[in-house]
């Protein structure tokens, strides 16, 4: 059980790492949204799933309720993260930011 929790937690941390580095490395605002919107969602999802499993080890009613609440957070992140990404991209389009294309200097 501990091994499964560790695998889930570390894969979540891996995706969160990729998200942070992607935000630093990508050349412009639109392409930075790709790691911010996707990698952070999956990283949060996997890490929280692992922690919910760990919480269920000493089974009791309180632990079950806490794990269900963590699942609620996962569902919320799963729905809210694409919406937040879309809100940011919409603000960028309305402000008139042009997407970066190949060959330009990075911003």
């Amino acid at each position: 059980m501990d091994i499964l929790v560790c695998i889930l937690l570390f894969s979540g941390l891996f995706f969160l790492t990729a998200g942070s580095i992607g935000i630093l490395r990508f050349p412009d605002f639109y392409s930075r949204l790709h790691p911010a919107g996707k990698l952070d969602t999956l990283g949060t999802l996997l890490a929280l799933l692992g922690l919910a499993l760990f919480n269920l080890q000493h089974f009791s009613l309180g632990a079950l309720l806490t794990s269900l609440k963590i699942m609620l957070i996962i569902i919320f992140v799963f729905v809210a993260s694409p919406t937040a990404t879309h809100a940011i991209v919409d603000a960028g389009v309305r402000a008139g930011l042009a997407p970066w294309t190949k060959g330009e200097k990075r911003r």
Binding site: G12, S20, L24, F29, D40, G43, T44, S81, I88, A95
Partner: peptide, 29 residues
């Protein structure tokens, strides 16, 4: 801290917002 770099340095306001959002999703975990 890595995301905070983007939140502080980011060339436009929206870049800063991406950084803040990334920090928030890490705080959840």
């Amino acid at each position: 801290v890595l995301s905070l770099y983007r939140a502080i340095v980011g060339p436009s306001v929206l870049d800063r917002m991406i950084g803040v959002n990334a920090i928030g999703s890490k705080t959840t975990v």
